[in-house]
Design a protein around this nucleic acid. Structure first.
Length: 335
DNA sequence: TAGGCCATCTGGTCCT
DNA sequence: AGGACCAGATGGCCTA
């Protein structure tokens, strides 16, 4: 169960690493932006101000005497630099700025790749940096709990964990990605997310009477038989439950009585990439996500879908290619 | 218009 | 000495 507290201070502290992010690995757009920005840096704008001589600076500093109550600056006085030294200093400062930009671009690229592997990736509605980190932390925590439990997780707790500490818009986004009605999430004044509606588990396990519908130890509402799901197969062959004529009373996943697009599990259980996945270079992803007992490692460069016979969370369907139709479905979920 | 988010510059600190 | 890292400051952009 998801009961242990997880402090950001514990989980977010990490050793310094990745200092030497290769510049050539920067996304092209970032490189272009870098060039563009370097043409109009603030340093250029402030260049004129930098021309103040050190003597003038010293004079101003002398003026700032004890009269104003502020102590004089301690430490060695600034050396007076010659013109060549000043030029050199400026050059080094510009180089440092460029390195700093490059470093931040690397950081942002890493963050972008993180966005793509946490639930609710959207190109158009990007999670902020802080929200991405929070969601990633929650996601890791929830998955860890799932693995350690060794059984189907309580989806409600899973979603609650995912949304813990997230802003309301992000919570709504996550809920939307999971096809939950955002109205069923109540965020109290402490930022804790509560759920007041029917369990989203029913959306995950739609077959009345089947063990997919009634996970062990789960007391959620069962489906009304009038809401008959039929199997919807995407081009990839993955199963996606789909409902006809749902109603709020029926206990179906469609709270607004509207026909919703096919449920898929990309929100939580699969990796998705609008761009050609580069995980071939990072094969540990496959190992990490497919390390369930008794399962062989899935090939990298894959997306994992829940198969019709899936027993969450370990029976994941390998999708070796990304089809357009699925991309559209994903788009509807992630935009 | 205020607030959030972001990119960038900058100077300081730490490390090699 | 020089590079990486960090945090504060600043200004731009966007949205409610």
């Amino acid at each position: 169960m998801l009961t242990l507290p997880f402090e950001e201070s514990q989980m977010m502290c990490e050793p310094r690493f990745g200092a030497n992010y290769p510049r050539e690995s920067l996304p092209e757009s970032l490189e272009q932006e870098r060039k563009h920005n370097s043409d109009r840096t603030n340093s250029d704008m402030r260049e004129a101000g930098d021309d103040i001589s050190d003597r003038e600076e010293d004079e101003r500093e002398d003026e700032r005497d004890d009269d104003d109550g502020l102590p004089k600056k301690r430490g060695p006085r600034k050396k007076k630099l010659g013109k060549e030294q000043m030029d050199r200093s400026k050059l080094r400062r510009n180089e440092a700025n460029a390195r700093e930009r490059s470093r931040m671009h690397g950081l942002n690229a890493a963050l972008e790749s993180l966005r793509k592997v946490v639930p609710c990736y959207s190109k158009t509605q990007k999670l902020s940096k802080i929200e991405t980190l929070r969601l990633a932390k929650n996601y890791i925590w929830a998955l860890s709990e799932t693995l350690s439990a060794g059984k189907r997780p309580d989806l409600l707790a899973f979603v609650q964990t995912l949304c813990k500490g997230l802003s309301q818009p992000t919570t709504n986004l996550v809920a939307g990605c999971l096809q939950l009605n955002a109205r069923n999430f109540l965020t109290d004044h402490n930022g804790e997310v509560m759920f007041s509606g029917r369990s989203p588990y029913d959306a995950m396990y739609p077959y009345p009477g089947s063990d997919m519908n009634t996970p062990p130890g789960h007391s959620g509402t069962s489906l009304d038989s009038s809401a008959k799901p039929f199997r919807h197969y995407s081009y990839s062959g993955a199963y996606e439950p789909y409902y006809e004529n749902p109603s709020p009373e029926s206990g179906s996943p469609h709270f607004d009585g509207q026909l919703s697009p096919p449920m898929n599990f990309n929100g939580i259980f699969s990796l998705k990439h609008d761009d050609p996945p580069d995980y071939g270079k990072n094969s540990h992803y496959g190992m990490r996500y497919c390390s369930a007992p008794g399962r062989t490692a899935l090939a990298h460069n894959s997306m994992y879908r829940v198969s019709p016979e899936a027993r969450f969370p370990y029976d994941l369907h390998v999708r070796s290619q990304s089809f357009q139709a699925q991309g559209e479905v994903n788009g509807s979920f992630h935009n």
